[in-house]
Computed example of a mutant assay.
Amino acid sequence: MKIGLFFGSFNPIHIGHLIIGNAMAENTDLDEVWYVVSPQNPFKKNKSLLHEFDRLEMVERAISDNFKLKATDIEFKLSRPSYTIDTLTVLAEKYPRHEFVLIMGEDNLVQFSNWKNHDKILEYYSLYVYPRPNTPDHDFKAHPKVHFYNSPLLDISATFIRQCIKERKSIRYMVSEPVEKYIELKGFYLQ
């Protein structure tokens, strides 16, 4: 199987994440898209980051009705911060019959040369990139392992959602209903 890996904090997972994952699963040659819940992104220091098991639970609830989308906790067992190259190595060993590709926004592609072993990632893996408006020029546009796919984009952020919750405003339609109910049940992001 050909698997697209969509890495993120998903703090919380929102409709924008779901649209991108579904668009990649439906409009590319991918068999499945796996949401890789990252315990700690090396580029982000976030004090409002929920425990990884709570974020995994929200991802699982958000995608439970789509057989092409899966959630994985593979990075929970790795050293922290987690680096994509290490995760890819573990996945390749664990699932030798699968072909893995990375899904990312073009805004992340601009910073890709800062990633640990980015050259090795491009040597062994393809990148499926969804364009983002106002992305500056970068060196990866013509790379043979970088493929661009259109996806509907929403200007929505987890930061905005967390701020709405803190201010006790509705997050309806920004997250799926199961995620909204879980956040309410647990009282997440109120502080």
Rank of each mutant, 00 (worst) to 15 (best):
S82D: 07
K166W: 02
Q163P: 00
S113F: 12
F100K: 09
E57M: 15
L88C: 08
P131H: 13
F7Q: 00
K169T: 04
M104V: 08
F112L: 05
S64I: 13
H51E: 14
V33W: 06
H143Q: 08
A158V: 01
F188E: 01
F6D: 01
F76Q: 06
R97N: 15
F53V: 12
K68F: 08
D73N: 14
D86N: 12
Y125L: 03
N150Q: 11
P39W: 08
A23W: 08
Y182M: 01
N66M: 05
D29P: 03
I121F: 02
T135G: 12
P131Y: 14
F53D: 13
S126M: 04
Y124T: 12
G8P: 06
I156S: 07
N41R: 10
A92L: 08
A23G: 00
G16I: 04
K166H: 09
I121W: 04
L50M: 15
D155S: 08
V179N: 04
E32L: 14
G187Y: 01
L5E: 02
Y95E: 14
I85V: 15
A23R: 02
V179G: 03
E167L: 13
L30R: 03
V175Y: 01
E26M: 05
G8C: 00
L190V: 11
H118E: 10
N46D: 15
L127W: 07
S38P: 09
K141C: 10
L127K: 05
W115K: 10
K45Y: 10
A158D: 01
L122F: 04
W34R: 07
T28W: 06
E180Y: 06
N117W: 07
P42W: 07
R80C: 02
K186S: 06
L5R: 04
R97M: 12
P42H: 12
H143R: 04
P81F: 12
V37K: 04
K166V: 00
L69P: 03
A142Y: 09
I20Q: 01
E177I: 11
Q191W: 03
S170L: 11
L78G: 03
N22G: 03
V37D: 08
V37S: 00
A158G: 08
K141E: 08
I156N: 03
S82W: 03
F100V: 02
E26A: 06
D137E: 15
G21T: 02
L154D: 03
H51N: 15
V179W: 00
P131K: 10
E32F: 04
S170H: 02
G8I: 05
I165Y: 01
I74P: 04
